[in-house]
Computed example of a mutant assay.
Amino acid sequence: MSNPSFISFSGVSKSYDGTNYVVDDLNLDVRKGEFLSLLGPSGSGKTTTLMMLAGFESPTQGEIRLDGKRLDDKPPHQRDIGMVFQNYALFPHLTIAENVAFPLSVRRVSRAEQKTRVKRALDMIELPHLANRRPAQLSGGQQQRVALARALVFEPSVVLMDEPLGALDKRLRETMQYEIMRLHRELSLTIVYVTHDQAEALTMSDRVAVFSDGRIQQAATPSELYENAQNAFVANFVGENNGLAGRVVSCDDTWATLALSDGSLIRGRCERGLRVGDEAMLALRPERAHIAAVEGSHVDEHNNVVRARVEELVYCGDHHRVHLTLGASDSIVVKVPNTQRHTLPASGDTIEVAWRHDDCKILATSVPPRAPALRSPATPSPSLITTAPAGAN
């Protein structure tokens, strides 16, 4: 049985000038308790989508619903939505406890109830000992945890996060990723999370919606996005990809054969709608290719095989990156696990690279045209948050 939609965007578009659309005919459903990430490059429409859901931007057309009720005609403070911003948006003149209590005070919760809920929220993020400090006395990671507690303290239906970890260093960012995942799991939260970091989206999400030029290119589980990209944009944006160009010489509903520039014929899974003669791209993850002579594997009828010249070897700790040239100009990268049980090829060697037919996909090279640059909505300031409590959280 399919899960009912909890958040629904139906035909939602957003234009600032009446001509160009930063979000174009968005149709998206989010299930209750789901962790959905909106992933895409800058200007792709993901933050505008989040701001329309929060109430800081209004759709030009279309409907947004939460639990079956229209949202797009309600102000932010009536939406029962918590918000976590990249810059934390904490009030510098208030203590940590007062910052966390702010959305409760706006909602006229009694002081006794505020005290109980604030203590519970600070215990949840493991910072009860910092209740009387001010934001400037906390580290960036601690401030972000406080912002998260403030978003959760009034028990909202949905929590929105706009690149909340972007300002943190790598180690702290990874720690906070697991903290957010833990809270999502333990509290059964519905989270809509905006990021341009594809590794972050793959790690944290139940499902990821990939945006480009105001449209969703694909919405799927992380494994489905990585293993079965629907188009060239998704294959190149999500994870590392060897994108080799060629022309389709045969195809059916499932498989296609691609002729590369050096004459090599590659067989792989294919995107629906491909036709013989189409220009296409081979999508191949570097870890799926192998150097037969190095790894002791054999080539069989289920493998594609190309000859390539080794240009460079890069040591990356747990693996080696072998950069190769195929034909006159095409390049390919192979990740070789660092097992210390084999001898790597040398620069200048010509070697065979192989991969299974079902480990690659052949996709049309055409992508949606890039729309003119459009401004994105600014993050609301604390002064705006005082009149829009949901955004303060």
Rank of each mutant, 00 (worst) to 15 (best):
R117H: 01
P372D: 07
A283C: 13
M1S: 14
L38M: 12
V334T: 04
P59Y: 01
S139A: 06
R117Q: 07
P75V: 12
G317Q: 14
P389C: 13
H290K: 07
E240W: 05
Y16M: 14
A121R: 00
L152I: 11
L122K: 00
L127D: 00
E155I: 07
Y88R: 04
V322M: 12
G33I: 06
L260A: 08
P103I: 02
P377S: 14
R309G: 05
M204A: 07
D197A: 05
I332D: 11
S261V: 03
R120G: 01
V208S: 02
D318W: 13
C316T: 10
V234C: 03
C316K: 10
L363H: 07
E174I: 15
A136E: 15
R65V: 00
A292D: 15
A388M: 10
V100G: 01
L71Y: 09
R370D: 14
G43H: 04
I351Q: 05
F211R: 03
K74N: 06
M51H: 09
V208L: 04
M51E: 06
L265P: 00
S250V: 02
V159W: 00
R65F: 13
L172H: 14
H77E: 13
G317Y: 02
S205V: 01
V276A: 08
V30M: 02
P103Y: 01
L39Y: 04
L344A: 10
A121L: 01
R70V: 13
E200I: 12
K170W: 09
A97R: 08
E57T: 13
N236D: 14
S250A: 14
L122F: 00
N231G: 12
A292K: 07
N338S: 14
A280I: 09
E113R: 09
L138Q: 03
I332L: 15
L66I: 15
S15T: 15
V234M: 01
K32Y: 11
T343Y: 04
H196P: 08
T386Q: 11
A283H: 07
G33N: 08
T47K: 08
T49L: 02
A328Y: 06
A259I: 09
L282W: 11
Q340K: 12
F85N: 11
N304G: 09
V109E: 02
V106F: 01
H93A: 08
E34T: 03
S329W: 14
H302Q: 12
R247H: 06
A308V: 15
Q114N: 03
W255T: 13
R341N: 11
L130T: 03
G68Y: 13
E63V: 10
R133D: 01
Q137N: 09
D206L: 02
R269L: 15
T339D: 13
R111H: 10
L187P: 14
S15M: 10
F233Q: 08
G62Y: 02
L187D: 04
V109P: 04
I362G: 03
V305D: 05
R321L: 05
A245N: 09
T254G: 07
G239D: 10
C251E: 05
L313E: 09
L284S: 07
G18Y: 11
D67W: 09
L104T: 01
A149I: 00
R288C: 06
L244Q: 10
